[in-house]
Design a protein around this nucleic acid. Structure first.
Lengths: 233, 233
DNA sequence: TAAATAGTGTCTATTAGACAATATGTA
DNA sequence: TACATATTGTCTAATAGACACTATTTA
């Protein structure tokens, strides 16, 4: 397919790569600086054109190609398609659709080049403008993360394999934007341990002050555990 | 865009229109007989090409065009995008994507022409083969309906505005494919009434035998109520 | 009165939330 | 010892599930 023919209709895949910064306690999303027009030099979600100049066998393979490209270069622990938006106005070139994903990674990755992690809520709340309608996409990605975090273990996939109860409490509190009760979190980890999703290791972490923390290990890295009940809204 | 150019890539929108047949207690999906190649004369989900020979301003408008066309001609009470699948093999003509929706309607509609409602689980379980990969799409639509029915009022939108507790129990039991306890359902309807989603009317329905049934009325027709807890799996 | 179906009351189990009590570390 | 933090235990509230009991209709 030549560029001329393709210019009639573009279908892209965009990735919302979310991490939890344990130092700042912020939930962050990866954005990259666009190298080409339109919106050259502006920040945007990483994305590629599906089956454009480079052929793809499927949308999933296009997503994989994006994640392995220099635009991203990270290995997510979890991926989930959120939605497809398509209309005649979102891209100045032509009618276009975007199939976009929620992807979770831990905060041990070091990124290089013209990309950075920024606060998720800032982007979702339009405080940080992105190219195209990407602020809208980020809002939908944030909403999906939030609603699923009420009744599943999803946020734990932003933590490294080994994590403490405090890590879990902090990431849930940040994602849900409200305090999470310690005993509730411990009960949930207990249920997950019974079902083989996590295991309590014998190792301990010694903080600067206070009693050592138990270390949990995530076992089923790509599956999420569904709880019977929601955290309160 | 000419047919020749479009033949390089097709993006269609397909609709999974679900109803609950109160007479047979079956959850059913609408399928239509294809009038054109490929798969001419075979059964398939109703669908149209987005922005093909007929221009569309957005995917949602394309869905609206599909629902108002002679292929469907029904007014759903609820619509939700499920997913987009796209690859080079699902359509014999070319690389193609389908953005498909879950839509709910009540069983008061009378349909005409080359279309019919068939048992949802039969189609999802490949007992009833459809054109393209539509059995897979139906499976994904069924799974979405099932998982959302565990913690929301979604199945009630397949009932007419006025319905009885027994209607509610029957549709939940059919969708979840397991008995639903009467008191649990009544409690949930009570919660929905407190939140203004339904109201208990003063009217009664008199069955052939037995005590008259109270009639509930659905108030917020397009919103779904989210319960704090799931029905057990 | 008998049968059928609707609706109510009560008990148990589960789990989120709140908070007190205890344990284990550092300075 | 004083302080900080982790962990455990106990109580309450909400709600699904189970089941018995009562209410209202027709035949």
């Amino acid at each position: 397919m030549s560029n001329k023919e393709r210019s009639n209709y573009i279908h892209s895949v965009d990735a919302g790569l979310i991490r939890f910064n344990r130092r700042t306690k912020n939930v962050e999303i990866l954005i990259i600086k666009r190298e080409k027009a339109p919106y050259e030099g502006q920040w945007a979600l990483p994305g590629i054109v599906i089956n454009g100049d480079i052929p793809d066998t499927s949308i999933e393979m296009a997503l994989s190609r994006l994640l392995h490209s220099s635009k991203v270069g990270l290995e997510p622990k979890y991926m989930e398609q959120v939605e497809t938006v398509g209309n005649g106005t979102r891209d100045p070139r032509c009618w276009s659709s975007s199939t976009f994903y929620l992807a979770l990674i831990d905060d041990t990755y070091v990124i290089e080049g013209e990309k950075k992690f920024v606060n998720l809520n800032d982007v979702a709340g339009d405080k940080f403008p992105l190219a195209f309608d990407h602020n809208l996409l980020v809002r939908k990605i944030r909403d999906r993360l939030l609603s699923k975090s009420l009744y599943s273990s999803l946020p734990l996939l932003t933590l490294p394999d080994l994590f403490t109860t405090t890590d879990a409490i902090e990431v849930f509190s940040s994602v849900l934007d409200r305090p999470v009760i310690k005993t509730s979190m411990r009960q949930r980890l207990l249920k997950m341990a019974e079902s083989g999703y996590v295991t309590e290791t014998q190792e301990k972490v010694k903080p600067a002050m206070g009693r050592p923390q138990s270390l949990y290990q995530n076992l089923k890295r790509t599956e999420i555990y569904l709880f019977d009940r929601c955290f309160e809204q």
